[in-house]
Amino acid sequence: MEFKDYYKIMGVERTATEAQIKQAYRRLARKYHPDVSKEKDAEARFKDLGEAYEVLKTPEKRAAYDRLGQGPRPGEEFKPPPDWGSGFEFAGAGPGAGGADYSDFFESLFGAAAGGSRPNRGFGSRRRPADRGEDHHAKVMFDLDAALQGGSRTLTLRIPEIDGEGHLAARERLLNVQVPKGILPGQTIRLAGQGASGGSEGKPGDLYLEVEFEPHPLYRVDGRDLYLDLPVTPWEAALGASVKTPTPGGVVDLKIPAESRAGTKLRLKGRGIPAASPGDFYVVLQIALPAARDDQAKAAYRAFADALPFNPRSTLGV
């Protein structure tokens, strides 16, 4: 098991005061909150942070944690000492952060239920018929092709559950989902009856998947519209040309109008993300210059300069 240095995670000294710890938590929580941060590992960091804060803000847990010392050297296995936990009582509220499951490290020290024992806790009291199962919510990443063509994708979800002894544990659930064609990032898919099972006569809850897209190597998504940056040569842009262009539906011959400039947007209507009124596919032209490495290329550039006197900075007054 990996030792977690909660002080390092919070970026504070081991001697930090409660106020300093709270301050560090607030600052880092704003930075790594998954709804705010665009950083890739924000979710994991925010979870670590919530766990670190849960331990360091609670005097009993912090005292117990401090007794472990600095932990093993990096790479060494961590095992709680045999007398671990004697004399401390871990009860009380859950962490401020929303992570429903803790690391193995945390659980080996404080038990799975130490942070509060309800899955999906946090939004306050739950009011629903007592026998209806809970709804589950999960964030999922789809590739753009799933939205364009539909099709099935296998998702791995971590479902918090309470085991027979009342401990909170995360169960891994593999789910094959038929992606609705035309789904957009920011939308939600509802899978009826796929939440927690209900009581003896109750209906199960529903599963809500909050959808985001993985970045596509070629296309950008804006609403239902797709954007592609297409490099063209100066002569293709100036004289017009027909060039091969990738689109979600396959390679097409795209007509570049004469006198196109960098940034010119060409629209392929209805070739964006499908819907009753589908999005469009935009090609944004970029002018790519051939390198002037050898003499022949340099001569060509010079001939070009001689033939076409041109001051692109005239509007700058120079």
């Binding site: 891994e172 989902v177 992606v179 898919i189």
Partner: peptide, 19 residues
């Protein structure tokens, strides 16, 4: 704990129909 793959499940785009 790991379970077998469930599905395929068909979902609906909640944003499109829910009121």
């Amino acid at each position: 704990m790991r379970s077998d793959i469930e599905g395929p499940l068909s979902g609906e785009i909640f944003d499109d129909y829910a009121v």
